[in-house]
């Protein structure tokens, strides 16, 4: 009886020793990678340019304040556009993301070999590429304007909503679906009664959350010509009108705070 705990103890010790080794190795790799990359960055940085950085910062601060308060009257229209880009983009993104999520979820996909990897690829591609890059491409293709912004936001939202939705679908309680199946329900009825009620809270939560993020992202799409308040930002930056830039930042900050509040209120109400 006495030998068993001892062997267990030594085995445990050996395990922790190996574990400790791995931890140290991980730290070593991380730190040396940090040093190497830091040096690469130093090579690419012109330090003499940076010597007067504090002065630059003070100078920039001086030029940015006070904000040009009266400029706000020119910003309501662009702000309305920004809101529309975010909302319409989110809606279109959701409409596409939901079927993609059902195709990607292990328990609802029609084919695990063929359809599921394709749906996952759509999700990954959409997630990897920021909406600003989508906008860059779309402006080149469609020309500048709100439409490019809406589609850019939609394309980026597919991956986000799709990923969280398909994970929610895979985590549903299968007993409920089984019970509906046992009544002789058809495929669509099983979806309607067995699966949809279970994922509906996730769906609304994720959608509102993404809308909130999209408000933030759509404020800068104008930098590449995709409409909204970013167009004004771009113009102000190009003409070095720093008080206007500050005013635009203030408006953006306010919008973001409001949208975040709305989104958290809605998410709390769903629960």
């Amino acid at each position: 009886m006495m030998t068993q705990p001892t062997t267990a103890l030594t085995a445990w010790k050996r395990n922790t020793r190996r574990h400790e080794w791995l931890v140290w190795l991980a730290w070593l790799v991380t730190i040396s990678a940090f040093i190497v990359t830091w040096q690469i960055m130093n090579q690419n940085t012109l330090w003499f340019f940076l010597a007067d950085a504090p002065e630059q910062i003070r100078d920039l601060g001086g030029r940015m304040f006070p904000p040009s308060w009266s400029y706000i009257h020119y910003l309501w229209g662009p702000l309305w556009d920004t809101l529309n880009i975010a909302t319409l983009g989110t809606l279109i993104g959701i409409v596409i993301a939901v079927p993609v999520a059902f195709l990607a979820a292990r328990n609802t996909t029609p084919s695990r070999r063929l359809v599921r990897p394709l749906a996952l690829l759509v999700i990954v591609a959409s997630r990897s590429i920021n909406s600003l890059i989508w906008a860059l491409l779309l402006v080149a293709i469609l020309g500048p304007g709100l439409l490019a912004g809406v589609i850019a936001i939609a394309l980026r939202s597919i991956g986000f909503v799709g990923k969280l939705m398909y994970e929610a679908i895979e985590e549903i309680d299968t007993a409920q679906v089984e019970a509906i199946e046992a009544t002789g329900a058809s495929l669509m009825q099983r979806l309607d009664y067995g699966i949809v009620p279970q994922i509906l809270p996730t769906f609304f939560g994720v959608s509102v959350f993404r809308w909130d993020i999209n408000i933030r992202e759509s404020t800068i799409l104008g930098l590449v010509g995709a409409g909204g308040i970013g167009l004004q930002l771009q113009a102000a930056l190009n003409t070095l009108a720093w008080p206007r830039v500050t005013m635009i930042f203030v408006v953006i900050l306010g919008t973001v705070v409001v949208s975040e509040w709305v989104s958290s209120q809605v998410r709390n109400a769903i629960r």
């Binding site: 940085t45 933030r216 930002l233 930042f249 900050l253």
Partner: peptide, 27 residues
Amino acid sequence: AVSRSLQEVIIAILFVAMVGFGPLAGF
């Protein structure tokens, strides 16, 4: 709160204006 509500791109604009073009602004 400030760091989270400002888009990375907006912060980047400011840093580029301060320290010039290049990866340092990105960092």
